[in-house]
C-alpha cells in the first residue's frame, strides 16, 4: 500500500496503517489501556515495547476486535477492523493454543486460508501448495507433515508465522514472536519480517527484547498503559523515554545510539524467560 496513493475522503485517517484514538480498555476498575493515541505509518516495521502488564497484548487484541474497548476507536488504512479481516495477518502468542492438538504443521498453516475459502468449503490442492510455500519461506518444508506436538518452540512459532504469511496480508500483527524461541528462529523471523517490510507491508510487533529494538525496527511505540512515546526508533529510543516506561532500573539498558551491550540480568526486566 504506497503512502502516496490517492486517499478516499470518506475514510478516517487512511494515511496510517494503524490509527488508534482515545482508546481505553479496562478490566474491572483498573484500566489496562488508558487514552491511547497511536499512529503507525504504512511500510514500517514497528515495535511496541513496554514492561510486563503494560497492556501491549491488550492493545493488539483490542485493535483486532478481540477485546471490546470502553472508549475510542481503531482504524486500519482508514477502515474499521471488521472491513479489514482478510488484510490483516495475526500471529497470537504461541502459548495461547494447545500444541497437543492432533494436527500437522501444514494443516495449521492452511487455517490461514480458511477465511478466503469461505463457509463450508474445504482446503484443496491449491491451499496445500500455498501452505507448503509459506512453510518453505520459514525453512519448515521438511516438517510439513509433522505433528505440531513434536515441534520445538521455535518451530511452532515458525508455523504460526507461516499461517499469517499465507494470507498475503498487507498488515501483519505479531504478539511476542520472539518469546522463548532459539537464536536461529529469531534470525529467520527477523529476516522474513524485514523482507515483508521491504515489499511495502506494515509489520507491527509486540516485542520484549530491548536489545534488538535498534538493530531491527524502524518505528517504535513505548507504552505503559498510556503511550509514552512513538515515532522513528532513532528519535524515540532515548533513555528518558525508556526510563519513563520501565522505571529506574533502566541504567542497565543500552544507551542509544551505541550498539547495545548485553544487559546484566535484572529480574525486574526479565521478560525473556523461555516458556516451559
Amino acid at each position: 500500500m504506497p503512502v502516496d496513493a490517492p486517499l478516499d475522503p470518506a475514510l478516517h485517517e487512511p494515511q496510517f496503517a494503524l490509527h488508534v484514538e482515545d482508546l481505553t480498555v479496562s478490566y474491572g476498575a483498573t484500566p489496562a489501556l488508558w487514552d491511547i493515541d497511536l499512529d503507525i505509518p504504512p511500510g514500517v516495521m514497528a515495535a511496541i515495547i513496554g514492561p510486563n502488564g503494560s497492556g501491549k497484548s491488550t492493545l493488539l487484541k483490542t485493535a483486532l476486535g478481540l477485546v471490546k474497548p470502553v472508549a475510542g476507536h481503531v482504524r486500519f488504512l482508514g477502515f474499521p477492523v471488521a472491513q479489514m479481516r482478510g488484510r490483516i495477518g495475526y500471529v497470537p502468542q504461541r502459548q495461547a493454543v494447545d500444541w497437543d492438538f492432533p494436527t500437522t504443521a501444514r494443516d495449521v498453516v492452511e487455517m490461514g486460508l480458511y477465511r478466503s475459502l469461505g463457509w463450508f468449503r474445504r482446503p484443496g490442492r491449491a491451499a496445500r501448495a500455498r501452505a507448503m510455500a509459506a512453510l518453505a519461506e520459514l525453512g519448515m518444508q521438511d516438517y510439513a507433515e509433522r505433528q505440531i506436538s513434536q515441534l520445538s518452540g521455535g518451530q511452532q512459532q515458525r508455523v504460526f508465522l507461516a499461517r499469517a504469511l499465507v494470507q498475503e496480508a498487507p498488515i501483519l500483527i505479531l504478539d511476542e514472536p520472539m518469546a522463548g524461541v532459539d537464536a536461529a528462529t529469531e534470525a529467520v523471523i527477523f529476516d522474513l519480517l524485514k523482507r515483508l517490510r521491504d515489499q511495502g507491508r506494515t509489520v507491527i510487533v509486540v516485542h520484549h527484547d530491548l536489545t534488538t529494538v535498534q538493530s531491527h525496527f524502524d518505528w517504535l511505540v513505548i507504552m505503559n498503559v498510556r503511550v509514552i512515546a512513538q515515532g522513528p526508533v532513532a528519535q524515540v529510543y532515548t533513555p528518558e523515554n525508556l526510563r519513563a516506561a520501565y522505571g529506574r532500573h533502566l541504567a542497565m539498558i543500552a544507551a542509544p545510539p551505541a550498539p547495545p551491550p548485553p544487559a546484566p540480568p535484572d529480574p525486574s526486566l526479565d521478560e525473556t524467560t523461555p516458556l516451559p
Partner: peptide, 17 residues
C-alpha cells in the same frame, strides 16, 4: 474446518472474522 479452527485457536478465528 470452522469447528477445527475454533477448537484449535479461537482468537485467530475471531481475528479472521
Amino acid at each position: 474446518k470452522e469447528m477445527k479452527l475454533v477448537s484449535f485457536d479461537p482468537d485467530f478465528a475471531r481475528a479472521q472474522g
